[in-house]
Amino acid sequence: MKWMADIDIRGPQKGITYQDPIFLIGSCFTEHIGNKLQELKYSVCQNPHGILFDPISVCQSLVSYIEGRQYGPSDLFFYNELWQSWAHHSRFSGMDQGLVLQQINASQSRAAEFLRTAKWLIITLGSSYSYRLVQEGEKPVANCHRAPAQWFRKHLCTIDETVAALDNTLHRLFHGNPDLQVIFTVSPVRHLRDGVVENNRSKARLLEAVHHLVGKFNRLHYFPAYELVIDVLRDYRFYDIDLAHPNYQATSYVLEQFKTHYIEPAAQELMDKIQQIIHARRHKAFQPETQAHQHFLASFEKKTADLAETHPFLDLSEELAYFRNGKG
């Protein structure tokens, strides 16, 4: 008896390798992928503006990196005792205006440099809803920063709007980086505050827009994170208590599918070896002075040193220092 529906996942002809810089941008699900890749020692730049949900915000952010934009005092506003940016997530907000700008512009500079040589761009779209700041001529904002609801108009982007914004951005990206490959995903996180029906309408528009573009360019790919959770797992036991965010089991399953279909086989083998070292690094011994634990540390020190020697592009210095220092 079959308990899960089959899904056809079409990965690229040549998958991701450890030598490929990977740029990630978009919703919170982007960071599930990005954090795992970063943990496994890939070269990663993720969400330089912070978490972004709608395609307009994603496109505006990418264009700012292409243009090498730097932000100034006029780009910030003061609210709730904090200097904030309508273009950025609240992780950049702070009480010191100069420090906020310094952090934003440092992130901008790194993103612009990284994007020029990135091999892969992973875009995860979360919602078709875009919030427009009424007092500034319906200016699209990436984050409302808990400002009063009457400051904004909630706009459901049409499929044509989304396609146009992404299409124009992609052309500019490919002009600046002709070797760039793009992977689109739609986040399986359910925006229930919009309403169940409204969330489904929003996701449907993203899916239609993305597939229109994937069919247009041979360097665009689609990874079905949304379908893997909604149609393959399709059970509330794979969601957190809020019934909106996929839980650890669901996220792990999706990441395993990404690894299988989008990572080169040689890189997959290396990921498994690095994962063993990371697990060992996290091991907390109750009796660290025992011979057994000292042997454990010595064994993983050798494994880590050997892996670093055969793969010099990996930064395993932190893990190597831990195993060496723990031996006393």
Score class of each variant (00 low, 15 high):
Arg281Asn: 13
Gln268Glu: 07
Pro246Leu: 00
Leu255Val: 00
Leu307Ile: 03
Ala266Ile: 08
Gln276Asp: 12
Leu255Ser: 00
Leu243Glu: 09
Tyr239Ala: 06
Lys302Tyr: 04
Ala292Tyr: 07
Glu269Cys: 02
His279Gly: 15
Gln291Pro: 07
Glu309Tyr: 09
Asp242Pro: 02
Gln294Cys: 05
Arg281Tyr: 14
Ala292Leu: 12
Asp272His: 13
His295Pro: 01
His295Cys: 09
Ala244Glu: 09
Met271Glu: 12
Lys284Arg: 15
Thr251Gln: 09
Asp242Ala: 04
Asp306Cys: 02
Thr290Pro: 05
Ala244Lys: 06
Thr310Arg: 10
Pro246Phe: 01
Phe258Tyr: 07
Lys302Ser: 06
Leu297Phe: 06
Gln275Pro: 00
Ile263Ala: 01
Thr260Pro: 00
Leu243Asp: 10
His279Val: 09
Lys273Ile: 05
Ile241Cys: 07
Asp240Pro: 00
Thr290Ala: 08
Glu301Met: 06
His261Asp: 03
Pro246Gln: 03
Lys303Leu: 09
Ala298Gly: 07
Lys259His: 11
His261Cys: 04
Asp242His: 03
Ala285Tyr: 10
Glu309Phe: 10
His311Met: 04
Ala305Phe: 06
Phe286Pro: 00
His245Gly: 06
Ala308Gly: 01
Leu270Ser: 03
Ala305Trp: 04
Tyr248Phe: 13
His293Asn: 15
His295Ala: 10
Gln275Ile: 12
Ala244Ser: 14
Ile277Asp: 05
His311Val: 01
Ile263Glu: 02
Glu256Phe: 05
His295Met: 08
Asn247Ile: 08
Gln268Phe: 02
